[in-house]
Amino acid sequence: MSFASIPLTGSKPEQYAQLLAQAEALLDGETDRIANAANLSALVYHALPDLNWVGFYLFDGTELVVGPFQGLPACVRIPLDKGVCGAAARTRTTQRVADVHDFPGHIACDSASRSELVVPLAEGDTLIGVFDLDSPVPDRFDVEDQAGLEAIAAAFLRSLRPA
């Protein structure tokens, strides 16, 4: 099967609805988390402007370990008590950071990153990992981005469940 990203049009919520539909089409019938994380990373990285890193960190029972991503090489392991990804995983709440330099304990994997949005991936009490997006633009992510990316993260979690 080949897949070509469809250009996003309309308002930001309409664009995220289109992106979610594309994500769900990519995930349809596939339950492998690595395959789905790889495809979603590529889809989002190429669909949204002003991003320099999009990817997944997967929880190994102790810490977050880098998974599929698009962008420059990344930090391999992130403790749950460090950085924006660790905060999202630890608190199970999305972290939207306007300027990562103002975030206590920020881990600078890419010095060009200025803002970040990290969505926790959890099923009940079970932490799966986090969906992480970085931008070189300060204050790149707003509440509409957060809602749209949380919906994509939820689609990823749904894809992991057997049919």
Rank of each mutant, 00 (worst) to 15 (best):
I6F: 06
I6S: 13
T9F: 05
T9N: 09
S11T: 15
S11V: 14
P13F: 10
P13W: 10
Q15D: 01
A17Y: 04
L19G: 10
A21W: 05
Q22M: 03
A23D: 04
E24Q: 13
A25F: 09
A25S: 14
L26C: 11
L27M: 12
G29W: 04
T31I: 09
D32G: 14
R33T: 14
A37S: 11
A37N: 00
A37E: 00
N39Q: 12
N39G: 06
L40R: 02
L40C: 02
L40I: 11
L43A: 12
Y45D: 04
P49L: 07
D50G: 06
N52R: 07
V54H: 00
Y57E: 01
L58D: 03
F59Y: 15
D60F: 02
T62R: 11
E63S: 06
L64V: 04
L64T: 03
V65N: 04
G67L: 03
P68G: 04
F69T: 03
Q70V: 05
Q70C: 07
G71Q: 00
L72C: 12
L72Q: 15
P73V: 06
C75S: 08
R77F: 02
I78M: 14
I78S: 13
L80R: 11
L80N: 10
L80Y: 04
D81L: 00
D81Y: 00
G83S: 01
G83N: 00
G83D: 01
C85N: 13
A87N: 07
T93Q: 14
T94H: 02
Q95P: 02
V97M: 09
V97P: 08
A98L: 10
A98P: 04
H101D: 05
P104N: 05
P104W: 07
G105V: 15
I107Y: 02
A108G: 04
D110Y: 02
R114H: 08
V118R: 08
V119H: 01
L121I: 10
A122D: 03
E123S: 14
E123M: 15
G129W: 13
V130C: 08
V130D: 01
D132Y: 10
L133A: 05
D134V: 02
V137F: 00
V137N: 03
P138N: 15
D139M: 10
R140E: 15
R140D: 13
F141S: 13
F141Q: 12
F141C: 09
F141H: 12
V143N: 07
E144M: 06
E144L: 08
D145M: 13
A147R: 13
G148Q: 09
G148P: 04
A153G: 09
F156E: 11
F156D: 14
L157I: 13
L157D: 02
S159T: 06
L160V: 05
L160P: 03
L160I: 06
A163T: 07
